[in-house]
Simulated assay, not measured.
Amino acid sequence: MELFTKGVASGARELLDTHLALPQEVHYVADLQRWILSQVTIALHFEHRLDPACPPISPSNLLRAIKDTKVASRNTVHTFLMEMKRYRFITPLASEDLRLQAAQATEMSELLIRRYFDIHLRALDTIDNGQRYALSCRHPDILQWAQPRFARLLLALRDWYRPPQTIAKFDRSASGSSILHELVIGVPPLSAEMTSPIWIGKVSPNAFSQKYRISRTHAARLFGIAREAGLIGWANRSNRGECWISPQLVRDYRYWQAVKLAAVSQAFHEACIAMNDARVGNPKQTEPGVAVGSG
């Protein structure tokens, strides 16, 4: 459990560093709905690159991919892809039928998704002393095989896209996931019997609003909702100073992260097999340089 906690915390720190280094890019996918849509959009892009018979990025194809989850409406998907084009995350794909509104991811999008995926590979390696990240560096093409599998796995995991209400109160809001990471990051492993509040030091909604470029009103509302739910509190009546969070919030957060990391690990493992199959043309043989057991 200690290594798991350490791995989750190291991944969270890297995600927070990314948010601070690339605030505009991260802010655009800083709530769970847009995060899911962005992952599935990139998955369509990589799938189409590997096999042109697979559907490319388009409003109808994105809607079809997420239909069982109901995470977004038709209008939301259309608006999302329009914004992706506006901010140059995707660009039109040459097609004989312009009605398809087909698109492809830009180099910037691919670099961002690689950064995200590598963070999680390193987190997994911290947990089990694996070599996934080193293997990914030696074989960078693994990303286009692994990321679509990761996205598809999460679409099949209701525990991920419909998280507990403790998590949803944060992740449904812009930058809520970064705030949640920061609240939990320093908490040590919890015993099963732990029920008392966990003191985490001084916390100020105003400081978070400045750090993650959200309005003070938004930050105050987010913390107010969490406080009313008994997930967070302060020694004083005001929302600043010495702060505590509930053990249930920590447990739900770590379970939610475990679901995601398990999907990354499985996707990476399956991608290694698929790459070997494609290279040697033998579904039962693996190339020594892309070891199946590394996932």
Rank of each mutant, 00 (worst) to 15 (best):
V203E: 01
D118Q: 15
V26T: 12
N75W: 15
I245T: 08
I36H: 03
A156F: 11
S60W: 08
R216A: 09
H27D: 13
Q285W: 13
K284Y: 15
D277K: 14
Q33T: 14
G241T: 08
Q210P: 00
Q285H: 13
D128Q: 13
A263Y: 01
S73W: 07
P247M: 06
S136L: 08
E270G: 05
E25H: 14
I57E: 00
Q104P: 04
A235I: 14
V184M: 03
M84I: 06
G230E: 01
D128I: 14
Q248A: 11
S175W: 06
P188G: 02
S246A: 15
L22I: 12
S136H: 09
R132W: 07
R86K: 09
N276M: 05
Q33N: 08
V250Y: 04
Q165M: 13
T195G: 04
A105F: 04
R216G: 10
P55I: 00
D141N: 15
V184C: 02
L3C: 07
A94P: 06
A229V: 05
D128N: 12
L81Q: 03
R240A: 13
K211D: 02
T76A: 15
N239W: 12
Y28F: 15
A219C: 08
S178E: 05
D17I: 13
A151D: 01
F117C: 05
T76W: 07
I225R: 08
F46I: 03
A21D: 12
E14L: 13
I167H: 01
W35V: 09
T195W: 05
L154V: 09
W160V: 13
A12T: 10
A278R: 08
S246Y: 10
Q101L: 15
N282A: 10
A278F: 03
K85H: 07
V290S: 04
T217V: 10
E2T: 08
T5P: 01
S109A: 14
H19F: 15
G201D: 08
A207L: 10
N282Q: 10
S238M: 14
Y133M: 07
A274W: 06
L50Q: 13
V184S: 02
F4T: 03
I225Y: 01
L98Y: 03
R34G: 05
R74F: 08
T195P: 00
T41N: 06
Y253G: 03
K211N: 09
R114Y: 09
L124Y: 06
R64T: 09
S173Q: 12
F150D: 00
A229I: 04
I66R: 02
R149W: 00
M1C: 03
P188Q: 01
I179W: 00
P288Y: 05
I142W: 01
E110H: 11
E2D: 11
A146R: 03
D118C: 15
I214R: 00
H269M: 05
Y161K: 12
I42W: 09
M108A: 11
A263L: 00
A229H: 02
Y255H: 15
V290F: 02
T69L: 12
L44K: 10
N75Y: 14
R240M: 14
R99Q: 12
S95P: 00
L93M: 03
H78D: 14
R64K: 15
A274S: 07
Y161Q: 08
G201F: 10
P55A: 10
A53F: 09
D97M: 03
T195D: 03
N236W: 13
